[in-house]
Design a binder for these strands. Sequence first.
DNA 1: AATGTGACCGCGA
DNA 2: TTCGCGGCCACAT
Length: 112
Amino acid sequence: MATRSSLAREEAFQRFHAIIDSIPPGRVATYGQVAREAGLPRHARHVGASLRRLPADSGLPWHRVVNARGGISPRPRGGFPRQRRLLEAEGVVFDEGGRLDLKHYRWDGDLA
DNA sequence: AATGTGACCGCGA
DNA sequence: TTCGCGGCCACAT
């Protein structure tokens, strides 16, 4: 079998992918939440790392993933407005601080 | 082997 | 409520 580390990374990537792909339109999830639902409680940063490596044509609704404050995390490429635009297209409303109300939009998958 | 980095998170001031 | 710091885990140098 292949080296376990690279395989584990792929596996984690698949898990994150599956979770994020399950987020319905108009809803969002935090990096930490995705990591937690994937069974990797403290891997919030790796969720972001995975998305960073994600190809643009993956079809994954990456825009539905926001940080714990309900805001869009700064990234190298400056697609900042794009994520907001995509969410707004799904009915998500941002406040003046550029943040959304997690209380209202946060998607609780298996969580009640 | 050691150090630095990151699309993060939580808590104390 | 906002800001700053440490903690966190895996990968790159």
